[in-house]
Design a protein around this nucleic acid. Structure first.
Lengths: 230, 230
DNA sequence: GAGAAGTGGAGGACTGCCCTCAACTAATCG
DNA sequence: CGATTAGTTGAGGGCAGTCCTCCACTTCTC
């Protein structure tokens, strides 16, 4: 991993730097993509990003030949933040409070950013840099849950993947509630966390594992949202 | 309601009956549509339905000029069954068991039928016959919840619309889990019902009402699923 | 100011879907 | 049975949406 990173930096250094105006435009594109992705998800037309950046389509295609290039350039850091929150939650002296706070923050971030939602679960985008970060998330979440169970504040028959699925469900909900009833997701997060803590009915079926979450996310494709006609 | 039904029958009687083979084809189309809708949702190409019925596209378009005609012809009875289950649940001597059984049955039905899922929440399809049935569902669900609250087995700060939203979330989940982890939804239904019963953390935000559910569903459009390539 | 680097955005190519219509076939009736 | 009417077919025209190239043009750099 280190090695890879070094190789990459080296390559960057060797490549002739962009002309000043070109570099400025590159930043503009990233900024525009960030905003448009947040508002309409990653499956917008690249034309829209170009337009939002005040540049021609050609420029976007020259700098980022595929949508994937944009995604990889933008979302690894966004996801990294979430991983950071999970690690932070592990530090909380109260395991239950930590878990709550993590779940809350993660969903809140997705509520504000359709692109993040798309990328957090997609296996179709972010196959390299982003995927690496994504893979680091699952173990921390698992640990978060286990710690709560050891403290006796989460039922023993759930696992990290269950929390993943819960986030997946809430992300799906956001798609429809957020535009008309912002914040409504908090009710259902609360409800599910309550179930996680004090539920007693034995959960049917087998506890899902990480591969199950993978198989499920495999089917997920970022939807194309229509442009907001204002 | 009776009146409407009578009018309709009358109209049918007056209209010249279809030729025998035409009537047979009509049935075939309905049967095929049922199957294809169940497998791939209501937003399949009408060509696919025609093909599945072993008929030409033209025949389908002659008999059911729009997709909506097919939807209206098929799904009011399907939804009616669900309303029936809700009514049945009201008869259960144990209010909590009734609520559970209803939720369980409703989701199970949607797990087996993508079309039903699409129609249950869509405001874009089934604007007449189906919508009428759909509207009759909400009050019964509300009653189901209230009865449980009166019996003290459901927390007082939830309402019928919350149960609606829960079903909505699970329906969204089904889209991705059912093909790879069939039945996984039961875990999360259980978890949420447990939260509904024994949750104690006050639910944030205002309790959603029927109009909120309407506004949310307004954004929902049946997705187009790719044909299963076997 | 010459040459290299970068830009713009109209438009060709493609895909996917809807639905018509002219040529056909089948049922029905006297 | 032939005439008449009803019904069927499916290739293909049309439309909408998207991608991404290409080359005349502008801007930077030395």
């Amino acid at each position: 991993m280190w090695r890879l990173s070094l190789c990459f930096d080296y390559a960057v250094d060797v490549t002739k730097p962009l002309r000043r105006d070109a570099e400025r435009n590159r930043q503009r594109i990233l900024q525009a993509a960030q905003e448009v992705f947040a508002a309409r998800g990653v499956d917008v037309m690249l034309d829209d990003i170009a337009h939002h950046a005040g540049l021609g389509v050609g420029t976007v295609y020259r700098r980022f030949p595929t949508r994937e290039d944009l995604v990889e350039a933008l979302f690894d850091s966004r996801l990294e933040v979430i991983v950071g929150w999970a690690a932070e939650a592990m530090e909380d002296p109260d395991p239950w409070a930590g878990l709550n706070r993590f779940a809350e923050r993660a969903i809140a971030a997705m509520a504000d950013d359709r692109g993040l939602r798309d990328i957090a679960f997609s296996r179709a985008y972010g196959r390299n840099r982003v995927a690496e970060v994504r893979e680091r998330l699952a173990p921390v979440v698992e640990a978060l849950v286990v710690r709560c169970q050891q403290a006796g504040v989460v039922r023993p028959d759930v696992g990290g993947a269950d929390l993943g699925l819960i986030q997946f469900m809430l992300a799906a909900l956001l798609e429809y509630t957020e535009p008309v009833e912002p914040g409504l997701w908090r009710r259902y997060l609360t409800l599910m966390l309550d179930g996680l803590r004090s539920g007693t009915t034995p959960l049917p079926g087998a506890m899902p594992d990480v591969e199950a979450m993978d198989r499920i996310a495999e089917n997920w494709r970022p939807p194309r949202r229509p442009p907001a006609d204002h």
